[in-house]
Design a protein around this nucleic acid. Sequence first.
RNA 1: GUGGGUGUAGCUCAGUUUGGUUAGAGCGCCAGGUUGUGGCCCUGGAGGCCGUGGGUUCAAGUCCCAUUACCCACCCCA
Length: 413
Amino acid sequence: MTEITAVRGFKDILPDQTQIWRLVEDKARDLARRFGYLELRVPILERTELFARGIGDTTDIVEKEMYTMEDRSGDKITLRPEATAGMVRAVLENNLAEGGRPLRLFCLGPMFRYERPQKGRQRQFHQLDVEVFGDPGPYIDAEVICLLSSFLTELGLTEVSVLLNSLGCPKCRPLYREKLTAFLRARQADLCPDCLSRLERNPLRILDCKVESCQALTADGPDMAECLCPECQAHLAGVTRALADLGLPYALSSRLVRGLDYYARTTFEIHSGRLGAQSAMAGGGRYDGLCRQLGGPDLPGIGFAVGLERVILALTQVKEFAFPGPDYYLAALAPETLGPAFVLAHKLRARGLAVEADWEAGSLKSRLKRADRLRAAKVIMLGPDELARNEVTIRDLATKEQITRSLSDLDKF
RNA sequence: GUGGGUGUAGCUCAGUUUGGUUAGAGCGCCAGGUUGUGGCCCUGGAGGCCGUGGGUUCAAGUCCCAUUACCCACCCCA
């Protein structure tokens, strides 16, 4: 143990984990390709103002969870706590939406939030972020949800189901918000302390409070679904119909609220029962007002983020992962065979084969054991006798079959 | 920011309740035996400032205080 340790909440992804990570990232890129989404890599560092204006300056993320600092010129900069704001900024700044057709984008990478670490929650975590700009209709909502669902199910997470809601638009949401606030204010004596402060700051969040008494209280309150304006109702109906046509299961939940201010209309989440308290694996929704709020045109948008640590956590509980080892383990059985073995390894690698070896001679027993641990398919054994005959012995670890080959006869390996 | 739990071998953990010679196990590692030349089995070996600092005691891995790191939960969110 060294005295210099990793920063709290920042974790190494160790070699035995990176293969699973690559599997997940490859699946993300594969789905993006099939659905026609292009990769946009936005910076990890942005101006603090972008997040303050984009996410909402009364949210917890902006108020107390951002890694914010001054650079040497005195500019306030922040490690991105989420990707959407940066994606919007990049789209506006580079005029990517000027083509007149919907812009489908994704981004893969680390996000940073100063939170207390726990299961499924770190200070540096990774998200797959998917965004579509310029399409106001319900089909694109369903497409994005379908992409998300496919990502998880194709990885092997079978128990996923989509929670769906509509938060209304600037026309109908304020009315609902007032109704709810009035209802709760009359009963605020029964609210938990947390919800009491939510009442002023973000009353909608009381709907997804975990305290039972608060749940019971809001159950009798006004229902968001009944307060939507006709346009929002029609939009939601369009989304559910499209999902139903795909046979994609979903559950409507008028308690589903999102934490970030920019969401409007469609919102959705996917939870897993295997993750402990931090059960939200993915979440997203429509943010039709965000581009304008960041100084751009009135460009509709929808997107989601998936927490990759949480996906992998759920995945490793459902599936055993066994990745193949190298094609060959090259065992030098005596010091004088090290040199020829070294050259042979290079030649085989140059031909595209995966060859592992340890550059010290060892007993046959220890070399075979090592090859076994490395999950190598075959062992190339090179001892003094073989060297004298200019040969090697190749042993198949599964079948125990052995053959001899001339050292120079690389094509037969 | 608030609560609870845990720090002992490379890894996973016993041992702490009730203080008492040289601190244990399994896995891994090294050497040997057995086996058709490895996986199973057997024998031997290396490897520990018992998180850190202070205190109580004849005596502390064990009791008390402080501190630190990690884990889990609240909160928040992906």
